[in-house]
Amino acid sequence: MDSSSSSQPEFDYLFKLLLIGDSGVGKSSLLLRFTSDSFDDLSPTIGVDFKVKMVTIGGKKLKLAIWDTAGQERFRTLTSSYYRGAQGIIMVYDVTRRETFSNLADVWAKEIDLYSTNQDCIKMLVGNKVDKESERVVTKKEGIDFAREYGCLFLECSAKTRVNVEQCFEELVLKILDTPSLLAEGSAGVERNIFKQKPPQADASTSSCC
């Protein structure tokens, strides 16, 4: 990524991914594990965070631009505009906290319907914290059923032990690579259109008509 001065495009495709889910389920930890292979006690995300990761998947050089969002309801006003243009959305819950799972249907799936602009956008359901097996309250079967009903991919993982973390992103990206409309958006040539998004504006300025 640092050799960006070369005129050769440094990647074949660029995809925009988004992490959503309740506060404390481990979205930022998942991202930290994926991008820097480390684990830490993180403070809550205020607003949004952003990381880039270069990967080679399915023989393609890919640049993943990943937006991480604050989970607390109050921040949705700041996070909702980041759904726009995402090719992949990862919905995270905590297998040891039931309400983080029930909020997927009550809150997060609705948020996607409301704010995602991409018809073909790939959704991935991720149950985190499987390292705490003894505290588990959401079964794998429930996760699978939810994923089937809502048309998502599904994996359980642990950002702490790194189990399945890379697979989460890999499976999501493979599916994006499999979807012609998303692939077209992610081609290196049209970077400007998808990598950046129209910056979220205060309510005032978004609805200007005259």
């Binding site: 403070s43 205020i46 607003g47 949004v48 952003f50 700041l78 505009s81 950046k196 998004q197 129209k198 910056p199 979220p200 504006q201």
Partner: peptide
């Protein structure tokens, strides 16, 4: 296309203590 919501929200919300 950098907007202040991408970097400055936390400056205000936590008054630089974040």
């Amino acid at each position: 296309m950098i907007s202040p919501s991408m970097y400055a929200s936390q400056w205000f919300i936590t008054v630089f203590s974040y």
